[in-house]
Simulated scan of single mutants.
Amino acid sequence: MTGEEVDDAQAVYVYEAPVRLWHWINAGALVVLMASGYLIASPPPSVSGAASDHFLMGDIKFAHFVAAYVFTIGLAARLYWAFVGNRYARRLFVPFSRSRQWRQDLLAELRWYLFIDRSEPRTGPGLNPLAQLIMGLMFLGGGLFEIVTGFALYGEPEGAGSFAHRYFTSWVVPLFGDSQNVHTWHHLVMWYLLCFVIVHVYLAIREDVMTTHSSVGTMISGWRYKRRPAIKR
Rank of each mutant, 00 (worst) to 15 (best):
F168M: 13
W102H: 02
V70A: 07
E16G: 01
D8V: 11
A160G: 08
S46V: 09
A89L: 05
L130M: 06
S179H: 08
Y202S: 05
K61H: 13
S215V: 02
A76K: 04
H187G: 10
L30V: 09
V31T: 10
H183N: 08
S215H: 03
V19H: 03
I40W: 05
G28I: 07
S221A: 01
P157K: 08
R166L: 14
V94W: 06
D7V: 11
Q180G: 09
V148L: 01
D178Y: 09
A164S: 14
L175E: 07
V216C: 15
G142C: 13
D117N: 02
K232V: 13
K232Y: 08
P44F: 06
I134K: 03
L137G: 03
D7Q: 11
R100F: 11
D53W: 13
Q101S: 14
D59S: 14
E5L: 15
N86A: 09
S99W: 07
W185F: 15
R90Y: 09
G177I: 13
E156P: 02
H23V: 01
W191L: 12
S179D: 03
P174N: 05
V199N: 12
P229L: 05
P157I: 07
Y13Q: 01
Y38K: 13
F196M: 02
T123Y: 03
G37Q: 01
A27N: 10
M219Q: 04
W24H: 01
F83P: 00
A131R: 01
F83S: 06
V31A: 12
I60V: 15
V12K: 04
W112A: 02
R100K: 13
D53R: 15
W22F: 15
K232E: 11
R166M: 12
G155N: 09
T2Q: 14
H200T: 07
F168Q: 06
L127W: 09
Q101H: 11
R78W: 12
P121T: 01
V189Q: 12
G155T: 08
S46T: 05
R111H: 10
